[in-house]
């Protein structure tokens, strides 16, 4: 089996008495979608934040492309190839859709130390941005201000910005949240194709999407991974049923 693209080793994080991440070791292999599921407050977002560099773990390390990235800050990890989408949209709300995608292209390309030529008139940046917008179906909204977008369109834009980075791994925190049935289905189809470009670590509540997409599923409860396996393994696991799926059903 090939080496994992991304792996956490015995990651731990406490908030006071609460153990939000408890000795978590997971990995993400080339070409796969690895879903992380778990009830609200299980520590999924906290785990994602530690992987992406927004939050420092108390113990453990994070390996990415064979290198220990635990000491890098969020922007350095993004430059190393981690493409992220947020549970709560993090976008420049006053800017247009194109400008947000161009921001990604700036990060991926020549960087921000250019002071004269208009960013949205720089062909290389705009082409990269427009290609990403086209892939998520936001071409028509190109010149709209993000604040005027629907919730679903903002989620799509989050994904588009991650695409502009051509990352080596995608880390997505509940990309389907609030999309509705139609939107979830469309995004499910899209992510299905995306895994061949780069593997996806997917935190998601939408069980239909998770079971349709995931090559592997890990179940996180009270900060601990209680099971990892294929969709069928997880569906039939007694432990998981007790701890999580049982509640949902």
């Amino acid at each position: 089996m090939s080496d994992p693209v991304l792996a956490t080793h015995q990651l731990s994080k406490r908030f006071g008495a609460l153990c939000a991440t408890d000795d978590v070791s997971i990995d993400l292999r080339p070409g796969e979608i690895h879903a992380i599921i778990g009830p609200n407050g299980a520590g999924k977002s906290t785990l994602i934040k530690q992987i992406c560099g927004g939050l420092r773990p108390d113990a453990g390390k994070i390996m990415f492309l064979g290198r220990d990235v635990s000491g890098l800050d969020a922007s350095a990890r993004a430059r190393a190839g981690l493409g992220r989408s947020f549970q709560v949209s993090e976008l420049a709300m006053e800017d247009t859709v194109l400008e947000n995608a161009v921001l990604g292209a700036i990060g991926a390309g020549a960087g921000p130390w250019r002071f004269w030529r208009a960013a949205t008139r720089t062909a290389a940046l705009v082409e990269r941005a427009e290609a990403a917008l086209a892939r998520v179906g936001l071409t028509a909204q190109r010149d709209q201000v993000v604040a005027s977008l629907s919730h679903g369109q903002r989620r799509q834009l989050e994904v588009a910005v991650a695409l502009t980075l051509s990352p080596k791994a995608f880390i997505m925190d509940e990309p389907m949240a609030g999309l509705g049935a139609e939107g979830s289905k469309a995004l499910t189809g899209f992510l299905d194709g995306l895994r061949s470009q780069a593997p996806i670590l997917l935190v998601e509540h939408d069980m239909d999407a998770v079971f349709a997409l995931a090559d592997r599923i890990s179940v996180l409860v009270y900060g601990k991974i209680i099971a990892t396996g294929s969709a069928d393994d997880i569906r039939t696991s007694a432990v998981v049923r007790d701890a999580y799926l049982g509640d949902a059903a």
Partner: peptide
């Protein structure tokens, strides 16, 4: 946070 996520400081 958005700016960091695209690799800028």
């Amino acid at each position: 946070t958005r700016v960091e996520a695209v690799g800028l400081d």
